[in-house]
Amino acid sequence: MTDASANNVTRLLQSRSFVELGARERARALLDAGSFRELLDPFDRVTSPWLPKQGIVTQADDGVVVAKGTIDGQPAVIAAIEGAFQGGSMGEVGGAKIAGALELAAEDNRNGIPTRAVLLLETGGVRLQEANLGLAAIAEIQAAIVELREHQPVIGVVAGSVGCFGGMGIAAGLCSYLVVTREARLGLNGPQVIEQEAGIDEYDASNRPFIWSLTGGEQRHASGLADSYVADDTDDIRSELQRLFAQGKPAQPRSSRHAWFLQRLADADTRTQLDAAAVRALYQGDAQ
C-alpha cells in the first residue's frame, strides 16, 4: 500500500458521518466546543397544536432545533431540521422557531453583535397537515434570510437524502452560500410529485440514479446552484463553514442573478428528456 493510500484509509477511519447524526447532534458538532445552548428545547414543550387534531403524535421540539453559540469564535445561531420527523416538513411552530432565530440574529447585528446563521436543511417543504400556516412560516423564513444576509452570511447546508424541497428549496436558494454533499438533493417539487403530475415516462420516482443525477448534490454544485460540494464528514463541513464565513458576504447573491437563470430555462429544449450532462451544459454557460 502506498503512503497516499494509507493516508486515505486512515482519514476514512477517523471521519465521522454528518448525515448519520440527528439534528441536535449536527448543530452541536458545528458549533465551537462548549458553546452550544439550545433555545426552546424539548423541555419547553412547544409543540404543534394541529397534529393531534389529526391523530398524529407530536414531537416536543416540532422537528426543529435552534441553538446559539460560536463558530470560529464568532456569535452564531444554527437552525437544524430533523428529517426523521414528518419528513422534515415545516409547520407553524417549527417555522416560527427558524424565522424568529433569524430575525433575532438580524437584530443582534443592528445592535453591533455580528451574529451569523447556519440552516441545516433536511426538509420536504411545507407540512401538508398545517397547509397555509406552514406556507406562511416558510415565507417568514425567506424574508428573514434576505434581511439577515445584508449583515452577515447565511449558510445553508443540505447533507442527507431527505434533501431540501418545496418552499424551503427556495429558502436554500436565498442563502448567501449553499453547501451540499453527494447524498443531498435539492429541488422545488419532489420526485413523487413530478411523477404524479407528469407521469412516469417524464419522471420515474423509483429510479434513484436518475433522480440523483438531476437533483443530487454533485449535479447541483456543477450546475452553479450550490457553492460548495463536500464529503459526508463532520470535520469537513465545519471547516467549510469556517472558510465561507471568513470569506464574508458574496459580492452578488445568487437570487439577484434571477435573469441569468431564467434565460437558462428559456434555452432548454423541452421536446426531449434532459439528462445530467445536458443540464450541466445548460447551466455552465457564461454566468455574467
Rank of each mutant, 00 (worst) to 15 (best):
V193W: 11
T181F: 03
F210S: 08
I145D: 05
G217C: 01
G248V: 10
I170A: 15
L120I: 15
D201I: 11
S228H: 09
R238V: 12
A144F: 11
E197V: 15
N109M: 04
L119K: 04
Q152E: 14
I141P: 13
G125Y: 01
L178V: 04
T181L: 01
Q129F: 10
T234G: 04
G248D: 03
G187H: 03
P191M: 07
E197K: 12
L241Q: 04
V146T: 08
P209Q: 08
L148M: 09
G187I: 06
A198D: 07
R127K: 13
A198Q: 14
V179Y: 01
E147M: 10
R238S: 12
L225F: 00
H221D: 00
C175D: 06
A144V: 06
V146Y: 02
D236S: 15
V179A: 00
E195Q: 15
L186E: 00
A184N: 07
V146Q: 01
L214M: 14
G134W: 10
T234C: 12
G224F: 09
L214E: 08
L214Y: 02
I237M: 12
G224R: 03
D233E: 14
G166R: 06
V146A: 02
V126G: 02
V157W: 01
G124N: 13
T215P: 02
I200P: 09
L120S: 07
N207A: 13
G216D: 07
G199I: 09
I155Y: 01
A226E: 10
G248C: 08
L148I: 06
I211E: 05
V157S: 02
G224W: 08
G187Y: 03
D233P: 08
V146G: 00
N111A: 09
A144D: 11
P153F: 10
I194N: 04
I145K: 01
M168W: 02
R182I: 06
W212V: 14
E195W: 04
S161N: 10
D236E: 15
T215H: 15
L128K: 11
N109G: 11
Q219V: 02
P153L: 04
I113H: 07
N111M: 05
R243S: 14
L241V: 08
G166N: 06
D204K: 11
N207R: 07
L214K: 13
D235K: 15
P209V: 07
E107D: 13
N111I: 00
G167V: 11
I170C: 08
E147H: 10
G112T: 03
Q219F: 04
G173I: 01
L135G: 15
Q129L: 12
G160I: 03
V180N: 00
Y177M: 11
Q242H: 14
G187T: 03
A136C: 07
V179Q: 02
G134L: 09
A131H: 10
V126M: 11
L121H: 00
Q192F: 13
